[in-house]
Simulated assay, not measured.
Amino acid sequence: MANVDKENMISVLDNFWKQCEDAQRLGKNIVVGLPINGIVLCGMGGSAFAGAILHSYLDFSVPFEVCRSYFLPKWVDHNTLVIVASYSGNTEEPLAAFKEARAKKAKIVGIAKGGKLEEMCIQAKAPFIKVPSGLQPRDAMGYLTLPLINVLQNSRIIKDKTGEIEDAIGALKKSHHENAKDIAAKLKGKIPVIYSSQKLECIARIWKCKINENAKTTAFFNVFSELNHNEIESYINPAKNLFVIIIEDKNDFDRIKKRMAIMKKLVQDSGIPVLYIKLSGDSLLARILSSVLLGSYVGYYLALENGADPTEVEILENFKKQLGTPIN
């Protein structure tokens, strides 16, 4: 295991609860002035996970959008909160969005380990949350998510979530090793397809990305009930090496749960194996973070099954070199 896991990702996953414990202390000094007519979180890859999690977890009274693009939504103006998230601080798409947000005089908050984003925030006199370095962006979910909850609380955009954060940290101490090993063994040589409700799209999306980046293999995701209006037909003639994972939350809408149950049988009848996971736990944040942590472990153990270093992202880095530095 040590020969494959060269950068000791297993330690990062085992200590995710400690990351969250540390992260909950960040961002407590930042207050964004009201009024706010909408919130946009700009980020890519693992840095956008924070936006996906916040979108699933929180009930906002204003529009909330995750922007995985160079360009902001057209509706952004001077009363919009634009959160620019880039773990490295150098991701070109959110940096481009930062410039547009500044031109529109939006209310900007940056979060990164440093880099150009920190410099731009200092220049613009925008609040900046500096998080610890030394992680892959996809493994920094705690550092990129919990400080933003603090900012939103401080700014009276959401209610206080301190108790739910503490509950989530406690839930993250539970071991996922054996369950993840078992799931990874089932997924070896398969193409995972992960389904969740639209409400909890963040879970299906993060599972898919963790399998892609950690295990270096193909995976896809979709959400109920959209997939019942198109993708369902693919099971008439499915690829033979699919493996479907359906993730149900205890608070999913009843009609969504019924769709999931019917879909499970339909997929199994087509000859494709299905793993049905039911999330439990007191708080929604605990269920979300525990589930994405399990997905991280699954990606990790599937990497070991594939003989791949779970941390290395060679193709991604080579692609960025070929792309070159953007012209300002």
Rank of each mutant, 00 (worst) to 15 (best):
S11Y: 13
V12S: 03
L13N: 11
D14Q: 13
W17S: 14
C20L: 09
R25P: 05
L26K: 08
L26T: 05
G27E: 05
G27D: 11
N29H: 05
V31I: 14
I39D: 05
C42F: 09
G45Y: 01
G45L: 13
G45F: 11
G46P: 03
S47H: 09
A48S: 15
G51K: 04
G51Q: 11
S56E: 04
L58I: 14
F60Y: 15
V62Y: 04
P63S: 13
C67N: 15
R68I: 09
F71H: 15
F71I: 15
P73F: 08
H78D: 15
N79W: 02
T80L: 08
L81S: 09
L81K: 13
V82W: 07
I83R: 06
A85H: 04
S86C: 04
S88M: 06
E92F: 03
P94N: 04
L95F: 09
L95Q: 08
K99V: 03
E100H: 00
E100V: 05
A101E: 03
R102T: 02
K104D: 04
A112Y: 07
A112N: 01
G114A: 01
G114H: 00
E119T: 08
Q123V: 12
P127H: 06
F128A: 13
S133R: 00
S133Q: 06
G134C: 06
G134V: 02
P137Q: 08
L148D: 09
N154P: 00
S155L: 01
K159Y: 03
T162Y: 00
T162F: 00
E164G: 10
E164Y: 05
I165T: 01
I165P: 05
E166T: 02
D167Q: 09
S175R: 08
I183S: 07
A184L: 09
L187A: 11
P192N: 04
V193T: 07
V193F: 01
I194G: 05
Q198I: 12
L200G: 10
I206M: 15
W207L: 12
K208F: 07
K208E: 12
N212V: 10
N212T: 10
E213N: 00
T217S: 13
F221M: 13
F221T: 11
V223H: 02
F224S: 07
F224L: 13
N230G: 07
Y235E: 07
I236T: 01
N237A: 12
N237I: 07
A239D: 10
F243K: 03
V244K: 12
I245F: 06
I246A: 05
I247Y: 10
D249T: 00
D252E: 04
R259F: 02
A261E: 13
K264A: 03
L266C: 02
D269K: 14
D269P: 04
I272E: 03
I272G: 00
Y276V: 00
A286S: 15
I288L: 09
V292M: 10
S296L: 11
A303C: 02
L304F: 02
N306K: 13
G307R: 14
T311M: 15
E312D: 15
V313H: 11
L316E: 14
L316H: 05
N318I: 02
K320H: 08
Q322G: 14
I327D: 09
